[in-house]
Design a protein around this nucleic acid. Sequence first.
DNA 1: GAGCACTGC
Length: 859
Amino acid sequence: MPERMTRDLPIHEIEDAIVASLGDRTRLVLSAPTGSGKSTRVPQILLDRGILDSPAGGQVVVLQPRRIAARMLAARVAQELGVRLGDEVGYQIRFENVTGPKTRIKFVTEGVLLRQMVRDDSLENIAAIVFDEFHERHLYGDITLARALDIQEAIRPDLKLIVMSATIDAAQLAGYLGGPEQCGLLHSDGRTFPVDVRYASRPSYDNRSPVWEQAADAFCEFSRASDPGDVLVFMPGAFEIQRTIETLGHRKEARGYRVLPLHGELATKDQDAAVARQDRPKIVVSTNVAETSLTIDGVRLVIDSGLARIPRHDPYRGINTLLIDKISQASADQRAGRAGRTAAGVCLRLWTASEHADRPVQEKPEVQRLDLSEVVLTLKSAGVHDLNLFRWLEHPGEKRIAHAEELLLDLGALRRGPDTHARITETGRRMLAFPLHPRYSRMLLAAEEFKCVHEACLAAALTQGRDILIRKIDKHTQDRREDLLGHKSPSDLFVLMKAWSHAAEHRFSIEECGKYGIHAQSARQVAPLFQQFLNTAKREGLSIHEAPATDAALQKAIILGFSDRIARRIDAGTLRCEMVHGRRGDLARESHVHHEDLIAVSEIREVGRSDGEVNTILSLATAVKPEWLEEFFPNDFGREIDVRYDAQARRVYAHEIRLFRDLPLGRKAVEPPPLEESARLLADEIVAGRLELKDWDHAVEQWIARLNNLAAWCPEFELPPITADDRRTLIEQICHGQFSYRSVKDKPVQHTVREWLSPMQQQMLDDHAPLRVKLANGRTPKVTYADKEPPVISLRVQELYDAHETPTVAMGRQKVLIHILAPNMRPVQVTSDLANFWKEGYPAVKSQLAGRYPRHEWR
DNA sequence: GAGCACTGC
């Protein structure tokens, strides 16, 4: 029989209030910091006080953001109640279901419940749902709460919903849950030790030394005055951690300390070492893992860089970014709290108090930061057709929703309905059976057609968790790895599959994996995923073919999931690639598909470099044959004729360029088109000096190609004689963007055009030429044209900031719309004269951004 | 020569 719990934790002070509130209303927000005992005791209170005894069945489901928490909390509650884990108290996480028919208290991770809601929205047997650690605002937690509210209103009015949070603005949350009419609001105190938070005396932008130096300085200064005990240093990533450790190694104050790194890519034994008690005091230098996921007991001093690498999905470009950013006040408090777990502690922040006040209060919720494709598909299957009307706690932004819908339409998971809202298709429903990003579920469905389901399941499993191939390895390991995996491959996924198979054959032995730089723990975790996908595929009626699939079969399946990420190498000497939709990036150095011209990439990530610039890295590449694209996407092909004039030979050459969407795939020589005569006449004009040109050879070459394109666009266009009006027309065509920006951006052509013109026309060109904007960091921002509206220049805040250091170079004096893409918020728009942007437009931008986006010091 | 936070179905 369950024992009665002891009432030794702060949460019991409001036990009666909880019971009373849930007697009146079905919703409750409970704000309580760590140490209040809410996670273990609230479920027991619900059970003990009869709140779960509803006709619908008496289970409380407690949502946890992490598996390990679900497992440990269940074990602790079972122990407190004196019952066997899996009977009255159980837990369910991916791959593990430790519950039984008697289970009344069930801890689950967020994805488990969302999946359950997709299958069955009556939530039979569930009397109450508790959302724990809701302030972390994970994507699935947000969606699960919103759906639970829908379900409560539509079919389960008796369902109790309790949202627990440590730091979130509880009143706002209570408002979302219907206000005082429908939702109770309670607060409990925690039980932690006080932490003395100290700020830097100099603002961080004033301090030119790198964060690792600053952290080491702070440590040395502190340890000269008092004994720090165990120390925890927060850094944004592995690189900075390494530098911090090196720097501390040169400081005499750090002698006698064990200095240990802690981050996700470390082997388990190294992570354990950082958490374990040492024979000497220790300094653990860690990423965000130590903020929520791992606790290190005995820490009395926290040194916080205030930085983290924060992932975001940019819906404008359809890529993921991972850039270093300042953490929020809430996150900094969470980090500081790590110094007060076992005794009073100190937290040294490497930024000033006034800078702190400028930081955002909370981190942006994931729903406003990440790719929503999977969530959108889930909601569509639940009958939410207009996602802008969904009950978002915070609206993710129309662009983010639109981007997800576009991808799902491309994948065939959605189809436009009569009311313009896209509806889920049969393919979409089948895709939803797989717990995967829709791209990968699409790949698995395609794999059936190409008879490679088994292989595709493994490929999908390998992309889910941490990379199984460790990046930083020594030369010997590198050589051994190359012997095992080869140098070239049609797909990086094949390389991963080969590495994994080797690890699996050796039962994921740490020693054997270590020889090849394979992360044994990550590789081991792939196996259950692989099995889960195979089982799902079987259940969905896909046939798991016994015969090994050909490489081409799997490559084709991959392409069907990633057709909007086709890329072409620009040249053989570099890793530069151009992609469909005008994007560019660099193929990952470690890719094994470096010998191929045309690839599909499964991952695009924008990553900050140590010099402050940004790299777009294309990884997990798969070789693509153009004829496959033709087979699958016959309507996405176009062609363009490129005519060039060879001045020495005085001949015109023509090439046909094949385009996949807007990506040039290859060129082949063709008969010069009828325009040849006109082109030659034009060339003669120039050669004869009747048109003064600088750098004429190149200019002519470019210009003739442009004229040819114009003729294709406007058949009545006659080249000779070139009247002033013709020229005007030409310029206007250019100005209105009917030539691609790329085609006229080269300097010689600008020259050419200028030289043709009367002074008045030159003025017109200056006023209306396609904008050429070059930033101080060498990047050229995107410029888009629309009818009758000023051109739009899209700048990311980072670029704007970089550009501010040295002036932006820009041609053109017309008014433009400058679109500032600031992470975490709607784009800020200002209309400005570009040449005077810093004088006129920038103050407007600044006033809109300052305070809301304190990533940089706005000057 | 360059480049990578953490979870979760």
